[in-house]
Design a protein around this nucleic acid. Sequence first.
DNA 1: CTCGATCCCTGGACGC
DNA 2: TGCGTCCAGGGATCGA
Length: 297
Amino acid sequence: MRGLQSTVAGRRILTVTLRKSDFIDDPVALERELPGRQIAGIERFGKFMLLRLATAPAQSSSGIEPLAEALLVHLGMTGHLAPHFPDQPLTKHTHVTFELDDGRELRYTDARRFGRMAYLAGAALAAELERFGADPLLVTKEEFAQSVQASHSRIKALLLDQTVLRGVGNIYADEALWKAKIHPTRIGARLAPVELETLRKELRKILLKAIELRGSSISDFVDAGGTPGDYQQHHRVYGREGESCFRCGARIRRIIVAGRSSHFCPRCQPAPRGASRARRHSRKNTKRNRPRATSKR
DNA sequence: CTCGATCCCTGGACGC
DNA sequence: TGCGTCCAGGGATCGA
């Protein structure tokens, strides 16, 4: 997002060329609405980049204008959005090209097409953004505690849930849980307040550091300037299955939680009570059928 | 309400 | 060398 801010903010889109478009909400709207529009600014919104669109060429630059129209871009796993010179050959998975008024082209490339692109305006834009939870860098202790306690989900699932916090992905969820010494399958609502607060603070620190280092390049991720990230050098658990815990030396384990690989230290991050064997062997201890509080309503 | 399973998609890793 | 198989991951969706 920062790379694009410095290179394409203020530019006007002349034309839109779509190749594959199955990752675009409404391709026709994109082709209809974007030509002639100025990219007034670029913002981060969770995992989305939000290209704010202005109508006139050089719009007033004073004051904050309502976010009336925008192009939402989610890079998914392999998405890439960056300016190119027209003479640079198109690479294999370049699906969208925006011709800019300075002679360059803003190109969207995405081998796996797990990304998403959408032109949204007015109420539809507001409704889309409202679906998401708080920004993890801004969320307060109280807000975080409240949203975690509102469900019985496991903490790893909560961290990945974009309606709880917007922007946290698998790598950073694992890293934060390791730092806070919290096992990924623990029920979020059962964490001690001090654990939750430690988690929030560590997550914030990790994200800030990762942003500073331009993210984690596991295979071929590069930022809008073509530079790979460096945060993978700082991973403490992610991708380290079988290796030694940096804190205690125990073997890092990997399990699937919320459908995603979850790396943790079995010693530093103790499993919740009633998990695994303990539970299977004490089935009979499961007291009567708890009335489960009249749930049906 | 929460979960797992499944699908989307492709490249890279791995086995033979 | 080349082919088949498996896997990763963000998110939507569906059935349990």
